[in-house]
């Protein structure tokens, strides 16, 4: 364990991974309860387009992907609202568009290379200092937003129509939530890879919802499960020489099974 923690790139990976995993879990609680959890999956597909553009233009994939994913996520909301279709259909449309453009650009860039594979499956040990700072800023923004607007966010998740009749600008709340999720998704693709980002958004909140009696408990537990899974997953990756992204998600799934069994035992009121 001491050897594992002695490497600076491991330390940076653990810090960045923990920060972004906690942010994803906190945002995920609201997305899961608003039945928008698959938006993370859609955004991850759009990430591929951002990464492909970055590889073509030799720019930083993280910084290139953030505006692309943010604009696309607003597109998802606009399509759902404009055509009065369910959010999952809008997510499907935009993510398919992102994925196909991404694949097209990847082919133009000379096909799949090692850089791209790193983004697809995660490369937490290559997280830079700047990206770690970005992760810290994201978590601060998410925690600040949740603390400041806690009651408003819960009310909007619970009943959008009633929240509107209390003067809440529901569309602005949803836009803020989706934009923060865009940034979290982009920062997550180095941690677990494009394929597994949505798991960071969905699994910890679902685990927490199984065993919590209050909304605050859900937030704390979701963030806790997520951070623990990053540490345990990275350690397992180091010891057993397995991909860290997959190990992190498998630990998360272990938490989910544990919570299910705990819940089945009648421990949640």
């Amino acid at each position: 364990m001491i050897e594992f923690l002695s490497y600076s790139f491991v330390q940076r990976g653990l810090v960045a991974g923990s920060l972004v995993a906690a942010a994803c879990a906190l945002l995920g609680v609201f997305l899961v309860l608003k039945r928008l959890s698959l938006i993370g999956d859609g955004m991850s597909h759009i990430c591929l387009m951002g990464v492909a553009v970055a590889l073509l233009t030799s720019t930083n994939p993280v910084y290139m992907s953030i505006p692309i994913v943010a604009v696309s996520s607003l597109g998802i909301m606009k399509i759902a609202q404009k055509f009065k279709i369910y959010g999952d259909a809008a997510i499907g449309i935009v993510s398919a568009a992102g994925l196909s453009v991404g694949l097209l650009l990847t082919a133009l860039a000379g096909g799949f290379n090692t850089d791209l594979l790193g983004f697809l499956f995660g490369s937490i040990l290559t997280v830079t200092r700047g990206e770690t700072v970005f992760c810290a800023v994201l978590l601060l923004a998410v925690v600040g937003g949740v603390v400041s607007f806690y009651r408003l966010l819960v009310a909007t998740c619970f009943d959008e129509s009633f929240a509107h009749t209390r003067g809440v600008r529901v569309r602005a709340v949803n836009t803020g939530l989706v934009l923060m999720t865009s940034v979290a998704v982009v920062l997550s693709f180095k941690v677990v890879g494009i394929f597994l980002i949505s798991a960071l958004i969905i699994i910890p909140p679902v685990s927490a919802l199984l065993v919590s009696r209050t909304f605050k408990q859900v937030l704390w537990l979701a963030a806790g499960f997520s951070v623990v899974s990053v540490w345990a997953g990275m350690y397992a990756s180091f010891v057993f020489n397995i991909p860290s992204g997959a190990a992190i998600i498998l630990v998360n799934l272990g938490c989910l099974v544990g919570c299910y069994l705990y819940n089945k035992g009648g421990h949640r009121g």
Binding site: V154, A155, F158, D159, F162
Partner: peptide
Amino acid sequence: LAQKSPVAQSRFPIAAEEVVLMGLPGFSA
């Protein structure tokens, strides 16, 4: 008061008193 109960989500962990609290103006922390 709407026609349908807002949450079919069976896992929404919120107490009845918190639901009533949503009816008050302002959402201070």
